[in-house]
Lab assay of single mutants.
Amino acid sequence: MKTQEELTEIVRDHFSDMGEAATLYVQVYESSLESLVGGVIFEDGRHYTFVYENEDLVYE
């Protein structure tokens, strides 16, 4: 099982292909040891929320 830090790095790496991230945040109260819930805000103003669970990243 991966730590939240490892899950955060996986998510950060995925979003790095989409541009320069200004902020990546984790909603600790919705996350667990198995999943990471949060969002990313890019330098150009785009904002996505995400759920990373079971090696699957879903974002909108």
Results as ranks from 00 to 15, higher is better:
residue 1 M to H: 11
residue 2 K to Q: 07
residue 2 K to N: 04
residue 2 K to F: 06
residue 2 K to T: 04
residue 2 K to E: 02
residue 2 K to I: 08
residue 3 T to Q: 04
residue 3 T to R: 06
residue 3 T to C: 14
residue 4 Q to V: 13
residue 4 Q to D: 04
residue 4 Q to N: 05
residue 4 Q to S: 05
residue 4 Q to W: 13
residue 4 Q to K: 09
residue 5 E to T: 07
residue 5 E to F: 10
residue 5 E to A: 11
residue 5 E to R: 09
residue 5 E to H: 07
residue 6 E to P: 04
residue 6 E to W: 10
residue 6 E to G: 04
residue 6 E to C: 14
residue 7 L to G: 02
residue 7 L to W: 07
residue 7 L to H: 02
residue 8 T to Y: 10
residue 8 T to I: 15
residue 8 T to A: 10
residue 8 T to K: 08
residue 9 E to M: 11
residue 9 E to P: 02
residue 9 E to G: 07
residue 9 E to L: 10
residue 10 I to N: 03
residue 10 I to Q: 04
residue 10 I to W: 07
residue 10 I to A: 05
residue 11 V to G: 02
residue 11 V to F: 06
residue 11 V to K: 01
residue 12 R to V: 05
residue 12 R to W: 12
residue 12 R to N: 04
residue 12 R to A: 06
residue 12 R to S: 04
residue 13 D to E: 12
residue 13 D to A: 15
residue 13 D to Q: 15
residue 13 D to T: 13
residue 13 D to R: 15
residue 13 D to Y: 11
residue 14 H to V: 09
residue 14 H to A: 10
residue 15 F to R: 02
residue 15 F to E: 02
residue 15 F to L: 05
residue 16 S to Y: 08
residue 16 S to V: 07
residue 17 D to S: 15
residue 17 D to C: 15
residue 17 D to G: 14
residue 18 M to T: 05
residue 18 M to R: 06
residue 18 M to W: 11
residue 18 M to S: 04
residue 18 M to A: 04
residue 19 G to I: 08
residue 19 G to D: 04
residue 19 G to T: 05
residue 19 G to W: 10
residue 19 G to P: 03
residue 20 E to F: 14
residue 20 E to W: 14
residue 20 E to T: 13
residue 21 A to F: 14
residue 21 A to I: 15
residue 21 A to T: 12
residue 22 A to G: 09
residue 22 A to Q: 09
residue 22 A to L: 14
residue 22 A to W: 13
residue 22 A to R: 11
residue 22 A to D: 06
residue 23 T to C: 15
residue 23 T to L: 14
residue 23 T to N: 07
residue 24 L to C: 13
residue 24 L to W: 10
residue 25 Y to N: 03
residue 25 Y to K: 02
residue 25 Y to R: 03
residue 25 Y to F: 05
residue 25 Y to H: 05
residue 26 V to L: 05
residue 26 V to D: 02
residue 26 V to H: 00
residue 26 V to F: 07
residue 26 V to I: 12
residue 26 V to T: 01
residue 27 Q to N: 12
residue 27 Q to K: 11
residue 27 Q to G: 06
residue 27 Q to A: 10
residue 27 Q to P: 03
residue 27 Q to M: 13
residue 28 V to A: 11
residue 28 V to L: 11
residue 28 V to D: 06
residue 28 V to P: 01
residue 29 Y to C: 12
residue 29 Y to M: 05
residue 29 Y to I: 05
residue 29 Y to W: 09
residue 29 Y to A: 03
residue 30 E to G: 05
residue 31 S to K: 08
residue 31 S to V: 10
residue 32 S to W: 10
residue 32 S to F: 09
residue 32 S to I: 08
residue 32 S to Y: 09
residue 33 L to K: 12
residue 33 L to H: 08
residue 33 L to P: 11
residue 33 L to G: 09
residue 34 E to Q: 14
residue 34 E to S: 13
residue 34 E to Y: 07
residue 34 E to L: 08
residue 34 E to T: 09
residue 34 E to H: 09
residue 34 E to D: 07
residue 34 E to R: 12
residue 35 S to G: 06
residue 35 S to M: 15
residue 35 S to P: 01
residue 36 L to K: 00
residue 36 L to Q: 01
residue 36 L to D: 00
residue 36 L to P: 00
residue 37 V to N: 01
residue 37 V to G: 01
residue 37 V to A: 07
residue 37 V to M: 08
residue 37 V to W: 09
residue 38 G to N: 02
residue 38 G to M: 11
residue 38 G to H: 03
residue 39 G to T: 12
residue 39 G to E: 13
residue 39 G to V: 14
residue 39 G to H: 12
residue 39 G to M: 14
residue 39 G to F: 15
residue 39 G to D: 07
residue 40 V to M: 02
residue 40 V to T: 01
residue 40 V to S: 00
residue 40 V to I: 14
residue 40 V to A: 03
residue 40 V to W: 06
residue 40 V to Y: 03
residue 40 V to C: 09
residue 41 I to M: 06
residue 41 I to E: 02
residue 42 F to H: 00
residue 43 E to Q: 11
residue 43 E to D: 08
residue 43 E to F: 08
residue 44 D to P: 02
residue 44 D to T: 04
residue 44 D to A: 05
residue 44 D to G: 03
residue 44 D to V: 10
residue 45 G to T: 01
residue 45 G to K: 01
residue 45 G to N: 02
residue 45 G to H: 03
residue 46 R to L: 05
residue 47 H to G: 03
residue 47 H to Y: 09
residue 47 H to A: 05
residue 48 Y to S: 00
residue 49 T to Y: 11
residue 49 T to P: 01
residue 49 T to Q: 06
residue 49 T to G: 01
residue 50 F to E: 01
residue 50 F to S: 00
residue 50 F to K: 00
residue 50 F to T: 00
residue 50 F to W: 07
residue 51 V to Y: 08
residue 51 V to W: 11
residue 51 V to H: 08
residue 52 Y to F: 08
residue 52 Y to V: 04
residue 52 Y to A: 01
residue 52 Y to E: 00
residue 52 Y to D: 00
residue 52 Y to H: 01
residue 52 Y to S: 00
residue 53 E to G: 04
residue 53 E to W: 12
residue 53 E to I: 13
residue 53 E to A: 13
residue 54 N to G: 08
residue 54 N to V: 08
residue 54 N to Q: 06
residue 55 E to C: 13
residue 55 E to G: 15
residue 55 E to H: 12
residue 56 D to P: 01
residue 56 D to A: 14
residue 56 D to V: 15
residue 56 D to N: 14
residue 57 L to E: 02
residue 57 L to I: 09
residue 57 L to Y: 04
residue 57 L to C: 11
residue 58 V to Y: 11
residue 58 V to G: 04
residue 59 Y to W: 13
residue 60 E to H: 11
residue 60 E to T: 12
